[in-house]
Design a protein around this nucleic acid. Structure first.
Lengths: 331, 331
DNA sequence: AGCGGCCCGGTAAAGGATTACCCAGCCAGG
DNA sequence: CCTGGCTGGGTAATCCTTTACCGGGCCGCT
């Protein structure tokens, strides 16, 4: 592997000049730049990343720590982050915390250790691991969920309002006993969606009963069980607000097994406009979150913070959009 | 940020001893290890990754370059790779080539530059960028698709056989004019699936017509258009073999729009057992590829090659499993 | 008692790029 | 013609860790 000295020797200049030429510093003669460039090409020279990062005290890399690579919501965020980061020459590395505070903490350690320029993460809740970033002064932005007592940049969705609107919609469609299947207590988005659901019941003067609510992991299996339980109660719900698309999979499965048809028998609105939501029968009504945009906004905030660490922290809240399809209509 | 010298000073030993103690070398006195450990904890010492990688000439990182983060097949592979890599203390960074040779090449450059220990990738086809890895002697493993004229470790699925079996199944169910929607010409998996489809037609003595075949990007939009075209021909197919799950989304959408019901009207088998395949109505028959296993096998091969670069290259071919569900039954 | 060998741990080199600092040479002005 | 200033580029320090090499001290054997 060729080093900068090899290039310097071949071009007949010093390593300093090679570095300057290749990094586009203005103080190098045109002709020399060309000669250096050619020598570098000839040798297939690639700067040694670790050496550069060591000297610069920072790698042109941002780490993106999300809680589930298999969740389309998060992969769409990843796309947004990538597109913005690449524009300015940063690489993105994707890490999968699996909603597990320990894994999250490990990835944060790696990020610190590798001296990444910044971190974007959907925090699992425990603030402790994020403190490490703050302590070291590494730039970071939280997405999807706020950080308790930590004034950092955050990009959120007004998920409570969205949940309320979705529930309003179900009620307006004539469903009477609307239930809710949401994520674990303590996970902010799960709490917010439940709160929005309750807001709607309250303003529609419907009694809110814990018999209509189930909380479980944000996964298909948990939601499957929850839906099966809800539906086999004496007084089952006739509509369900489901807090993400993985859960929707479990819920639909449970309804199939009970011979209950979405829409006609039980109204369904789920969070996240997964690619399969439209082509299924009946098409699934969803709350579409602006995931890609969350990613781009977060990336821009991060870049701004990397450039100027004294910026004051901002909170950006984006809106979600209810898409009404067949699963929330009786007909 | 504390450095190793700070730790050394606090513990009253040399930096060499700190390094040895923290890296678990045997030749350090118990008591000293404890003292060093305590000093490190006290200072919150994290070794500087770039410095370590520079010295070691290699980072404990493997890069995974896949063609689509939004495709569940690839994210499942990612899970497999991660699980194995983490067991032995490697980190995994995920990169998204978007089926784009230029992006792939850029990520390979980054991987080389950062001196990652190894690379796992689903090659976009052009071999050129992979040559760079071979030239530099970086360990790598190809998944999902073989590399033309490159003897490297490869993990494949016998996708031709699987396509044949799926087509056989459709024919056995009484579908008469089976069509096929597959990926672009030149993409190996797409070609293989088409070949398997033709194998089945041939052995069942059905005429094979190009009117029943469409090739497009491995995406929903292309498949949507293809299915719409196929179905509005004078003599439309009464069954379809669809080459991946994103395409299945597009196909189901097109069928809905034409008021055609999967199963009863048109038999469908799609590749990849996406999470939503079962709960939809009717449940989607699929060819389940062992994606997670591909990931674990590839990771193990990569680790073996990192440890011993002279190993001879192996090709591992895994089988796929046909899961018959409602979309391939007339009833 | 003397010496060989072993165990532990210190000293310093190495790894490769960036950059502060400095110097040579040239031009222009006096 | 001399000198001050500016420009372009070289020298060498620096980033931090790992590890080759070396040496001190102690044990045990002869």
């Amino acid at each position: 592997m060729a080093t900068i000295s090899d290039v310097a020797a071949l071009a007949g200049v010093s390593t300093a000049t090679v570095s300057r030429a290749l990094n586009g510093k203005a103080t190098v003669d045109r002709e020399l730049v060309a000669r250096v460039q050619q020598a570098a090409d000839e040798l297939g020279y690639r700067p040694n990343g670790p050496a550069r990062n060591l000297r610069r005290q920072e790698a042109a890399v941002v780490a993106l720590i999300i809680s589930d690579v298999e969740n389309p919501f998060f992969t769409a965020i990843a796309r947004g982050v990538e597109d913005v980061a690449h524009e300015v020459g940063y690489s993105v590395v994707l890490c999968n915390s699996d909603e597990n505070a320990e894994k999250e903490s490990r990835y944060i350690d790696v990020a610190i250790q590798e001296r990444v320029a910044g971190v974007i993460l959907s925090p699992t809740g425990t603030t402790s691991s994020v403190d490490k970033l703050a302590a070291r002064g590494t730039a970071f932005v939280a997405v999807d969920r706020p950080l308790p007592q930590q004034d950092s940049d955050v990009v959120l969705v007004d998920t409570r309002l969205a949940a309320r609107q979705a529930t309003d919609h179900l009620i307006a469609q004539g469903y009477d006993r609307v239930g809710c299947i949401t994520g674990p207590a303590g996970v902010r988005t799960a709490d917010d969606r439940l709160a929005g659901y309750r807001d709607a019941l309250k303003s529609a003067k419907r009694p809110s009963s814990t018999k209509l609510v189930r909380r479980t992991e944000y996964k298909a299996a948990g939601a499957h069980k929850a839906a099966a339980e809800l539906m086999s109660q004496p007084d089952p719900p006739d509509a369900l607000l489901v807090a993400n698309s993985a859960m929707a999979v479990g819920v639909l499965q449970a309804l199939r097994e009970q011979g209950v048809r979405p829409g006609r028998d039980v109204g369904i609105v789920a969070f996240d406009d997964a690619p399969w939501a439209e082509p299924v029968d009946p098409p699934l009504s969803v709350v579409a979150q602006p995931a890609y945009e969350i990613g781009t906004v977060a990336a821009r905030l991060l870049l701004a913070r990397i450039a100027d660490s004294t910026r004051t922290a901002t909170t950006t809240t984006l809106g979600a959009r209810l898409i009404e399809r067949g699963s929330s209509h009786r007909t």
